[in-house]
């Protein structure tokens, strides 16, 4: 009998309303294993608004406050300020927002929270589009992906612009801890959630969350695709603590992106040349990341910045 590599306790209830094979559902389940029961979760309008099931039921065994789609960062500031004012010790204040609620409409409040050094964790679960409303394009949708608002028809071949690099935006605010994670690597995700919980100041997690209906793949492939996203270098796993980079996945050489692309209906129209181009981008991104890891390894940590809400 193998030892459990994850905490046994569950803080997500079964019976939730996620689609079969839902990446965001697994991301939440794993995240809460790392954050624990003293978490207050701010959730904006997103898939999880619905996944958490209608009143009077809830799929989350923690305190949860809903907020409109654009204001998660501000909600975290208010929760942290109240927790401090009321002397509620050992509370973990965390937000769980989709890519739209983080990188598009939620960007302003996120930036405000990071800039003010709000002592809270902002988690973006990235299913690369507005999936709850039926698969529309977001800033986090990859270039060339089909969505209902970036059709493959006439002269159009899916989204024309590259995916917004939210980690770059976040890191420009110098958070105390930021990491990418992927539910296909549960131990890594839970460990990063634990590290985020233990740190102080503004913290950010970018979790890739494969979406079977939105990405057009069969529900059993969620984990396989998640693994490929990381092993191809398209979504490398790393953490940045006080400016110092550390890569946690992948190890060794990158896999070709072909299998990842071909498994998803949203890329069905791609040519071999387009796939090769994506492979080149993945390698370039990976090399940039490796370079940063080398360059920041020797850098002394900056003095801590005082915390406020």
């Amino acid at each position: 009998m193998a030892k459990l590599t994850l905490p046994a306790e569950e803080w997500m209830y079964r019976g939730h309303a996620a689609c079969p094979g839902c990446g965001p559902a697994l991301a939440m389940r794993l995240l809460l294993k790392g954050l624990g029961p003293r978490t207050i979760l701010a959730i904006p309008a997103c898939c999880w608004t619905v996944i958490a099931t209608p009143f009077p039921t809830t799929a989350l065994a923690v305190a949860v406050l809903d907020n409109p789609i654009e204001s998660t960062g501000a909600s975290l500031a208010g929760l942290r300020a109240a927790a401090d004012a009321l002397g509620l010790a050992d509370v973990t204040v965390a937000g769980f927002a989709g890519d739209g609620g983080t990188a598009d409409i939620g960007l302003q409040a996120l930036s405000g929270m990071l800039e003010r050094r709000t002592d809270a964790i902002f988690v973006m679960y990235d299913n690369e589009g507005y999936m709850n409303t039926g698969v529309q394009r977001s800033g986090a949708t990859p270039q060339g992906a089909w969505t209902t608002t970036t059709p493959v028809a006439g002269t159009r071949r899916g989204k024309r612009e590259p995916k917004k690099e939210i980690m770059e935006v976040v890191l420009a605010h110098h958070p105390s801890y930021a990491a990418t994670a992927n539910p296909a690597f549960p131990e890594d995700l839970v460990r990063k959630a634990e590290r985020a919980r233990a740190a102080r100041g503004p913290r950010f997690l970018h979790i890739l969350a494969p979406c079977p209906p939105g990405w057009r793949f069969s529900s059993e492939e969620t984990i396989a695709l998640g693994r490929l996203a990381t092993e191809t270098g398209l979504f490398p796993l790393y953490e940045v603590e006080d400016g110092v980079y550390r890569i946690t996945r992948p190890y060794g050489t990158l896999k070709p992106v072909d299998e990842y692309v071909r498994a998803q209906g949203r890329f069905r129209h791609w040519t071999d040349a387009e796939i090769r181009e994506l492979g080149a981008q993945a390698r370039a991104g990976w090399e940039r990341l490796c370079r940063r890891e080398r360059e920041t390894a020797a850098v002394a940590r900056p003095p801590p910045i005082p915390l406020t809400a």
Partner: peptide, 25 residues
């Protein structure tokens, strides 16, 4: 706790959330 937010939208969100935890805002 005085929060100098980046917009009025966030200003009200912050006190809504603080109020939900029981603070006078």
């Amino acid at each position: 706790q005085l929060i100098e937010v980046e917009s009025e939208h966030s200003a009200l969100q912050a006190v809504v959330s603080a109020s939900a935890l029981g603070a006078r805002t």
